[in-house]
Amino acid sequence: MMDAFLTAHKLSVTLAGREVLHDISLALPRQHLVALVGPNGAGKTTLLRALAGLLPAQGAIHVGGDALASLSLRERAKRFGYLPQGHMVHWPLPARDIVALGRYPHGATDPARLSPTDEAAVERAMQATDVTQFSTRPATELSGGERSRVALARVLAVEAPVILADEPTAALDPRFQIEVMKNLRAAADSGILAIVVTHDLGLAARYADMVMVMQEGRLVAQGAPAEALSDEILANVFRVTAYRTGHEHRMIIVPWAGV
C-alpha cells in the first residue's frame, strides 16, 4: 500500500453534548477513490466535516504530513475540495463564477479577474464535468443534474489533493450518477484522494478502490469492496441481504431483501 496522505487518529466529535463520532482511526493514500457508506445517521457527513476541519474534533488529523490543526483556514482550503450535500447556491450567479470560486483558496477571489493559471484550472474542471455550455447561465436556473455537475466542477477547480464529496450522486438520474462517479474516478486516477459518501452500494462497489463502513459513529469495516461489503457486514450494518454478480471485472452488488 502507498503512503497514507490523510490520516486520523482516535477521532471523536461531540455535537450538542452527544458523541456522534467515536474513536475513528484511518489512513488513506492518494490516487484512491474511497466510498464512505453506512445507514442514515451513522455519522458519515460528520466524519467528512471533521476531516475537512469544518467542526471541532478530538484526536489528530494529518494531511500531507501536516497536522490539520496547525494549518490556516486558507491552507486547509487548498488541500480539501469539499462538496456538501445539496450544494445550495443562494443567488443566481453564472455557473462559471461558481466554478471560479473554487480558485478562492489560491487567492483568486474575483471571478472576473483570474490569472491564466486559475483560468486554466476553471476551464479544465468545466470540461471534465461537461458544463462549459452553461458558463453564463444562472446556476439557479439549471436542472438538478446540471447543478450537481457545476458544483462538482467547483470542487475539481480547487485542484486539491483531497476531495470530500457528500452524496454527490443523490437526486441524479442514472446517467449522471455514472458521469459523476466517472469524474471522481478520473480524479482519483490522476492522483487525488477522493472520499465519497454514498447510499448506493452498487456505485460504491463498482467505482471505489476501498469502502469504509460506518455504524453509529464508528468505523466498523474498511477494505476492498468485496471485503467491506461482505454478506455479514451487510446483514449486521444495513440489515439487508444482497444479490452479487460480476460484469467487466467489477463487482455488482444489489441490496435484495431486508433481514
Binding site: 466535516r49 475537512a52 469544518l54 483556514l73 486558507r74 486547509r76 482550503a77 487548498k78 480539501f80 475540495g81 469539499y82 456538501p84 450544494h87 445550495m88 447556491v89 443562494h90 443567488w91 450567479l93 463564477d97 461558481i98 470560486l101 473554487g102 478562492y104 483558496p105 477571489t109 474575483d110 471571478p111 467547483r154 480547487v158
Partner: peptide, 20 residues
C-alpha cells in the same frame, strides 16, 4: 466583498474555501 461572494455557496462551503 469577495468573502460575501463566496458566501453565496453557503456558510459551510465558504468556510471550506478559506473564508472565516
Amino acid at each position: 466583498r469577495n468573502a460575501l461572494r463566496a458566501l453565496s455557496l453557503g456558510e459551510e462551503t465558504a468556510q471550506s474555501l478559506g473564508v472565516h
